[in-house]
């Protein structure tokens, strides 16, 4: 979304394209080319089969997760009302009956897929259709074209993610009849925002691939490969490194802590891990620290109470910043790649 800002700034300071008609038209409002492109992209997405399929998958997943959560909750505290846990409403998103995964797991699993599906043919399909050279030979900035692709995709993602989040909230409210507190509501909202950022990262990655690879299939495959890599293999690799570099003396506390920190750093290079950590922290207010090592004193002396919303947010602030900066880095890469690319028709 910050890219949008950049585009705006550019438009303010950049040379204005000559528009003799603009003055003549006077009263009628002229939509800047950037928004014309965004509207068109958004319309294309909404009408596409791929979007309908995605929506179906994600909807089924969320309904499944609600079912899972509700069965788990009703088994969990049947009868005794004193046992109603704190933040019951948030449990809608985090507990599972052991058969079906919960909402958070579903989302962290499917989010990259949404991003990849929306962006993988953003640029190369226009190239093979021959529309890229036609659009780029109109008086529009090249970066506007890229920004429009991203902004339209992100808008769509935001709509989908929020719709699903509210769907789960609404259904949950209906089923368990237990209203959320304002804090719980804010936590869910914040989680949805982070989800949008996370999907945005994958959208950007897949747009990058769509610029890099001329074939839509190759770019989709590259995106999916990366998704599977972070989802499955990255954790394994970090474990392997962990075992290989484990300090020889398990009694050397400093070495063990340093080693653990190192592993933590490695894990956090993965956007999937970052997202999972951030979402879990927000959804489980009892998470007081993300550091696996607390000394006995720390554990003993800490007040056993959930964190406030602000404190949870503070805990994961670095994660949000990291996710956004990853997005920016990928965006910059696509930008550099695209700006200097030669655009011939259909090649």
């Amino acid at each position: 979304m910050s890219e949008q800002g950049i585009a705006k700034v550019r438009r303010l300071f950049g040379p204005k394209g000559a528009a003799p008609e603009a003055a003549k038209a006077g009263a009628e409002k002229i939509t800047p080319p950037f928004w014309v492109m965004v509207h068109k992209e958004f319309g294309d997405h909404i009408n596409s089969w791929r979007f309908i399929i995605l929506l179906a998958i994600v909807t089924v997943a969320s309904i499944g997760s609600i079912y899972s959560a509700i069965t788990a909750l009703s088994e969990g505290f049947s009868g005794s009302y004193e046992a109603v846990p704190e933040f019951l409403f948030l449990h809608m998103f985090t507990v599972s009956n052991g058969v079906m995964p919960n909402f958070l797991t579903f989302i962290s699993f499917l989010a990259p897929l949404i991003g990849i599906a929306i962006g993988f043919d953003a640029v190369n399909s226009e190239r093979t259709k021959g529309t890229l050279s036609r659009v780029i030979s109109q008086p529009v900035y090249r970066d506007d074209f890229l920004n429009a692709k991203f902004v339209a995709g992100l808008q769509l993602i935001a709509v989908v993610v929020f719709a699903l989040g509210f769907l789960v909230m609404g259904l949950g409210l209906f089923m368990i009849g237990y209203p959320p507190t304002p804090e719980e509501f804010l936590r869910v909202l914040a989680t949805l925002v982070i989800t949008v950022v996370y999907v945005g990262l994958w959208l950007n990655l897949s747009i990058f691939f769509s610029i890099r690879f001329k074939q839509a299939a190759t770019s989709a495959l590259a995106g999916i490969a990366l998704w599977i890599f972070f989802l499955v293999f990255y954790g394994l690799i970090v474990n392997l490194i962990g075992q290989a570099t484990a300090p020889s003396n398990p009694n050397d506390a400093a070495a063990v802590v340093a080693h653990q920190n190192f592993l933590m750093f490695l894990s956090r290079l993965s956007p999937a891990y970052l997202f999972q950590e951030a979402a879990t922290t927000l959804m489980l207010p009892n998470t007081r620290t993300l550091n696996p090592f607390i000394t006995l004193e720390q554990g003993y002396l800490a007040i056993d109470a959930p964190l406030s919303f602000g404190q949870s947010l503070l805990l994961i602030w670095p994660h949000i910043v990291a996710l956004i900066s990853m997005t920016l880095i990928v965006f910059a890469a696509s930008f550099v790649l695209f700006m200097r690319q030669e655009i011939r028709s259909r090649s």
């Binding site: 394209g17 528009a19 008609e21 603009a22 038209a25 009628e28 409002k29 002229i30 939509t31 800047p32 080319p33 014309v36 492109m37 068109k40 294309d44 009408n47 226009e126 259709k129 021959g130 529309t131 890229l132 050279s133 036609r134 659009v135 109109q138 008086p139 529009v140 028709s345 259909r346």
Partner: peptide
């Protein structure tokens, strides 16, 4: 080898180009 958006009408394609040129 000019390309158009195949799932849009001829009129839509032209209007899109026009609007990219800041024509209301």
């Amino acid at each position: 080898d000019v390309g158009f958006y195949d799932d849009r009408t001829a009129l839509d394609n032209l209007i899109y180009t026009a609007r990219l040129n800041r024509i209301p």
